[in-house]
Design a protein around this nucleic acid. Structure first.
Lengths: 160, 160
DNA sequence: GCCTTATTGTGAGTTAGTAATAATAAGTGT
DNA sequence: ACACTTATTATTACTAACTCACAATAAGGC
């Protein structure tokens, strides 16, 4: 298997954050890396491929802790459980298809980090902004085509 | 009571959308208008002030339907139930204090609707974007001050 | 290898909803 | 004003996605 270097990199990052290196954490990190934008349940399923005795509660605990450490990023699309990814620190955004739920990464829209300087209303008390989570919601090309098909030639290209 | 005109305006809007004008819907709309950025539970409590027999399930149904009609706007901050507001159609954003949960409205950052044109990665399939939900997360001034107090003069200004 | 304490597992409990159906009442026509 | 049709609401389950308390286990320093 070629996941030795990834393994080591994650282990080093964990130690750097003062965390013990456990197979549960490594399995979760590997699963998130292989399946970006996944909910806890899918991460559990993926991680169990290499660590069958892993429990759901451990996944929740590990995901929460690693998110607090900023080793993982968590975001919550509307009408969806929380999703996780390993791409952190670059202030990128997400586009979600409201029809099929597919998620795409989108680079920060306005250069570096202008998203972090909102225009406050005169009467608002400004906050110190740490992150700007931008969630684009729309319809992906596939779902658009599926909807535009004439009503009497249905359910043929819906497959994947 | 001076909520006659508001009452009538909501009633007209409901009719315009082909919905019947019920006291439940009017109570929910009035409650959301008076308590912007509120979760379903708070809206229920507020609406019951004028309509005690209203049920939680009705509030969920009404909120969902009115949101679909775009008479209400719904957003889901992280670690929070969905919040509702009557300010719709102006593509404004929200800033949430990660410490106390307070929510502020923020006008659209870059003029009119540039938030609606993300920069797609070369290999991504662009979606047709309908809304861009921008969620600024930071720390409000009050929470900031509370945190910066020296550790040995605690819990005095936390009260509201 | 042993020992301390972080980490994980076990099992129950909670929040924020959704779903199915029966009861009610808005608005239309008379 | 009255009846009637059907949207709307109430009632009652039921579920998803977590959270919490505590017992069992195992990392990593000695």
């Amino acid at each position: 298997m070629e996941h030795f270097d990834g393994q080591e990199a994650w282990a080093a990052a964990l130690r750097a954050h003062g965390r013990r290196v456990t197979k549960q954490r490594l399995a979760v990190l590997a699963a998130v890396e292989r399946h970006p934008h996944s909910p806890a349940e899918s991460i559990l399923a993926a991680a169990r491929a290499e660590l069958p005795e892993l429990t759901a509660q451990s996944v929740y605990v590990v995901l929460g802790d690693l998110t607090d450490l900023h080793m993982l990023r968590r975001f919550e699309p509307p009408h969806s459980p929380a999703l996780y990814e390993t791409r952190v620190g670059d202030n990128h955004h997400h586009a979600i298809c409201i029809s099929c739920g597919r998620v795409e990464d989108v680079d920060c829209a306005v250069g570096h980090a202008p998203c972090l300087t909102p225009h406050w209303n005169p009467d608002a008390k400004p906050m110190t902004i740490q992150i700007a989570d931008v969630m684009y919601q729309g319809i992906c090309q596939e779902c658009q085509q599926a909807q535009q098909l004439p009503p009497h030639s249905p359910s043929q290209e819906k497959e994947k």
